[in-house]
Write a protein that binds this DNA or RNA. Structure first.
Lengths: 298, 298
DNA sequence: TTTTCATTATACTGCTTGTATAAATGTAAT
DNA sequence: ATTACATTTATACAAGCAGTATAATGAAAA
């Protein structure tokens, strides 16, 4: 039963939030969710994989909501980005996943550590793409530095902000503060041509893990985003547009959330998409289809 | 034998660097340093306390060198600060203590976690003091934010710089880059009166841990620094001055590094200090003596 | 020489993750 | 309804961990 598996995930997440990852033993999870050891290891090959399952089950939702905020919007609008960051911060606050990740990042489980590192890099990469949207191609040489600074800044300001419960300021204030810093910083470093890390470096990050834990989802995400943008500019608001977006979202979810994506569904929906919209945005649909195929053939 | 104890510390440190804290078992340390379990637990009450011993044995040296850089120098000189940071970064690189701390920060050992947190706060507090020296009292409301940003920035830029071994840039370049950012940032936030965390917050950090692991050393460090500054301004360069500084350094070391500071030594040296120099800098000597006494009477 | 104290070897407790296996239960097709 | 298959359970087990306990050994101080 998939339901019972999800139950275990939820129970374990709750326990991890309460006591931490290491301090929560599998025994705790067994009694907490009322299953036997055999069932547990039937669901998850190890404690680390359970954590990954928790992480995925939570972040697929957040990532989805975060990307939805961009639909029908100007991707250069800094306010949208701020909303996206706030969304993620609130999600992290509730799920405590960032804290748990810190704990797991240094555990003995090599696979788990790799997974966490990859998600960190993915997050950096996403942010870099958004910074490109916002600050423009001309600032690109400085945007990897900037993203790293922004990421660390917001994490630590948030940490210290919550150390003292009495005076904690709302998250949005911290985001705006950090964003103000970045606006100025990017201007300065561009003026002085100060660069530490070349964004081209990111290309060397990803080949190694392309076909690992998040096999091709990254490509798919990009293709999806591009396609949505194209649709938003090519079509006026209305039923047609929303229908298309719904189709795309469904395909994306099916590919990313299911272990066995139903190919017949995807093919059918893709055909609908092609016949209905292909004329104006053919090139985007094609690269979308390409990503789909690489996802299916992994 | 104190020598053997230090041997164990060194061996354990080497093993921790190679395999990490958690992945190194006490058994590994036993065979590595050729002692038996009984002896180990005779030296250290637990694995966590061994780590603390390693940390102290390494950082007392770095802290000492770092503070020495300030003697006879203008504390507002930004170049000195950069040197101090570089010193610490090189020390961390060699000892990998920052990596180990990350690992230990989230372990199950509550005492150890507390110790690590305290050292982090101490480090932030020291940096805040230095920022005050450099940027002046007028910028104080913005300096806690700034220090947190600087600290996280330099840590993460360094981390990503060393991810790709092929293109790692020298530490000093990263420090200068981050420092440039801070110079501009502090100006901006002061202009816009943007503040997230009030530096007064720091006062609430420390009472709780005053009499714990670093009982009174913090006070002593401050008193020592102030006294040295006073001496540097009150006396011309020459034998007198260096002699005084030597005396002070010795007292500080004896109090902070030895488990059983030799009171008779300290009293004698203090007396010398008083008769030779008291006239011009009496008030500083008095607060120094006060710190000493609180250290001795813990 | 005897006392004292650090050290050693060894066994033991109680915890951990993960494996193995036989019995019991549920479920779906015939 | 009965057969066949999959899931679940209870339980014992292996190998590892930190830390405790203890009796025997050594060496230096009294």
């Amino acid at each position: 039963m998939k339901n019972r598996r999800q139950d275990v995930i939820d129970t374990a997440h709750k326990l991890f939030i309460e006591k931490g990852y290491q301090a929560t033993s599998i025994q705790d999870i067994l009694v907490g969710s009322g299953i036997s050891k055999g069932t547990f290891y039937n669901y998850f090959p190890s404690k680390g994989e359970l954590f990954i399952a928790i992480f995925r089950s939570f972040y697929k939702r957040i990532r989805h909501e975060r990307d939805k905020l961009l639909i029908n919007q100007d991707s250069a609008d800094i306010e949208i980005f701020i909303q996206q960051i706030e969304l993620q911060m609130m999600g992290n606050k509730q799920s405590k996943l960032l804290v748990l990740i810190e704990e797991v990042r240094v555990s003995n489980d090599e696979e788990l550590k790799q997974f966490i590192n990859q998600t960190l890099l993915l997050s950096i990469r996403w942010m870099h793409g958004r910074f490109l949207d916002i600050f423009g191609e001309s600032k690109k040489p400085y945007l990897l530095d900037s993203v790293i600074i922004f990421h660390s800044m917001i994490t630590h300001m948030n940490y210290f902000n919550h150390r003292e419960t009495t005076v904690a300021k709302p998250e949005i204030q911290i985001i705006r503060y950090c964003m103000n810093r970045m606006i100025h910083t990017i201007d300065e470093v561009a003026k002085g041509k100060e660069q530490i890390l070349d964004p081209e470096l990111m290309d060397t990050w990803f080949p190694e893990f392309k076909n690992h834990l998040y096999p091709c989802h990254d490509d798919l995400l990009n293709a999806t985003l591009e396609l949505k943008k194209a649709i938003n500019t090519a079509f006026p608001c209305g039923e047609n547009r929303t229908r298309a977006v719904e189709l795309i979202d469904f395909i994306q979810d099916e590919l990313m959330q299911s272990d066995n994506p139903r190919e017949f569904l995807i093919e059918s929906l893709l055909a609908t998409l092609k016949t209905g919209y292909a004329s104006q945005i053919q090139v985007y649909i094609e690269s979308f289809e390409e990503s789909i195929n690489s996802c299916l053939s992994r």
